[in-house]
Nucleic acid binder design. Structure first.
Length: 466
DNA sequence: CGTTTTTGACCTGCGC
DNA sequence: GCGCAGGTCAAAAACG
């Protein structure tokens, strides 16, 4: 009896020792991870400071040269500079009290803070905001029509917009003036991404309402509408790329008039920021949207309209009837091979055919082998790579560097013949255009959302496509 | 049984 | 005016 008892006790002791041991091992792992993150954070901060100093430097130089600040917005409001409200993909009215001040850095629009070795990122999604007190990553965006939404919140609110079939085209064709208005209202954001699943899981809830075989592409085009809210006007079209079936082309249109799940805000942020960038670019850089807009494809794929299937004419932009809206393309594909070639021809042709601005953003990632990032320069004249340097890393901490290119800077990029010049040009671009910053912000928030949670709500059910 | 998908019909605009 | 293409509707089927 006593022996049995003793046996049990010793077993428990051994079991307890094992538990302690495993816990200690676990603790060691956590400590190591913590240390690694700390180092990473220090590196990020270092990079950030370097970039910031560089920015201030360039800013001051430009101010001296021009006699006026290169950022008009900079003069407007210091607070505006420091704050950023990423209210993307929703029509929620920004509230002043929701805005957090990133203290201490007048020239920054982004802050990464460390508290007790903890990385704090403040991402304001307009709902379920992540509030951070001292260390918040704040992205600022100028107030105005390009209010970080696909179509601009203002008109959304005024119209109480609800999708009405055919109304878009009707409005659009009633006159050039209206065309310009509608173009602004109906910016489209096209996302090209490698995806094995029938659709990208963007966290939102969609219902398929139609499918069509489009000309020139054997893969059917599927039409979805957002079902999170019955009145939500947002629609998306999904189609596989005819040339590369692994590439899924998703085009979003409209603005969500409801709050989004956290997992959905990432994509919404990215796409809406891109849309706002496009809209602000088309409104500010173009004298008039009624003129034939220089549809600029700075890089990336032979940028056909995502749903124009005339791949037998790969470098032709679709005619105006098939692209009634300004379209911005976010190229999330990582393979440059699929996104290059024919650029110059395509670009020049597009100028003739397109009535609306069409812009591409290449979010191609860093080549894991070479550590360099591919750049598709404008005009197809300077396709090449630049090193994956600190400055780029600092833009997107812990993630591959990304290229962000903007139509308004077409010529600037052309002139950036050397690596150094390119870097400086990029810095200039980033610092001089608020909408550009918003895109960067969105990209970061997108990554933070994806990487941070690790889990994505699966709102989207399986859909058949092709 | 409610929701979602499928799919043919229909509508609209554009080019010829 | 006609044909084509893109986009949407809505009834039927499928699904959970």
């Amino acid at each position: 009896m006593g022996d049995v008892m003793g046996c049990k006790v010793s077993e428990e002791v051994i079991k307890g020792d094992d538990e302690i041991e495993s816990t200690e091992t676990e603790l060691r792992g956590v400590r190591e991870e913590n240390l690694r993150l700390k180092n990473l954070l220090q590196q990020i901060e270092k990079d950030y400071k370097t970039l910031e100093m560089r920015f201030v430097d360039i800013f001051q130089q430009e101010s001296k040269k021009n006699g006026s600040p290169i950022i008009s917005a900079a003069a407007e409001d210091d607070q505006e500079q420091e704050l950023v409200s990423l209210r993307l993909g929703t029509s929620v009215e920004p509230k002043k009290e929701d805005v957090h001040v990133a203290s201490g850095r007048s020239s920054s629009c982004c802050k990464v803070a460390c508290e007790n070795g903890e990385l704090k990122l403040g991402l304001d999604y307009g709902l379920g905001r992540l509030k951070t007190d001292d260390g918040s990553m704040a992205f600022s965006k100028n107030p105005g029509p390009d209010n970080c939404s696909f179509t601009g919140k203002k008109e959304e609110d005024q119209a109480g917009e609800k999708w009405s079939p055919g109304s878009v085209l009707k409005t659009q064709r009633s006159g050039d003036d209206e065309l310009s208005q509608t173009s602004v209202k109906r910016a489209r954001v096209c996302v090209r991404a490698r995806c094995d699943t029938p659709t990208m899981n963007d966290g939102c809830q969609w219902r398929k309402y139609g499918q069509k075989i489009a000309k020139g592409n054997p893969c059917p085009r599927a039409y979805y509408r957002c079902t999170v809210s019955p009145t939500c006007p947002v629609r998306k079209q999904v189609q596989r790329c005819a040339e590369d079936m692994s590439v899924l082309i998703t085009t979003y249109e409209g603005t969500h008039n409801h709050s989004l799940p956290m997992s959905a805000t990432a994509m919404a942020s990215t796409t809406s920021a891109a849309a706002s960038m496009l809209l602000s670019g088309s409104s500010s850089s173009q004298p008039s949207a009624t003129t034939v807009a220089p549809s600029t494809h700075l890089y990336g794929p032979p940028t056909f309209h995502p749903f124009d299937n005339s791949r037998t004419q790969p470098y032709f932009l679709p005619n105006s009837s098939s692209t009634p809206f300004p379209t911005i393309t976010l190229d999330l594909t990582t393979n440059p091979a699929t996104t290059q070639g024919g650029f110059g021809l395509y670009s020049s042709t597009s100028r003739l055919n397109s009535r609306v601005p069409t812009t591409n953003l290449s979010f191609s990632s860093v080549d894991s082998n070479t550590g360099s990032t591919t750049v598709w320069a404008s005009g197809g004249s300077s396709y090449g790579t630049f090193p994956y340097n600190k400055d780029h890393r600092s833009l997107l901490p812990g993630k591959p560097a990304q290229e962000l290119k903007f139509q308004s800077y077409f010529e600037m990029f052309n002139q950036a013949s050397s690596q150094q010049a390119l870097t400086e040009t990029l810095t200039k671009v980033i610092t001089s255009d608020p909408s550009f910053r918003s895109v960067i912000a969105a990209a970061i928030s997108s990554m933070a959302a994806n990487g941070g949670t690790g889990k994505v709500n699966n709102y989207e059910k399986g859909e058949n496509l092709g």
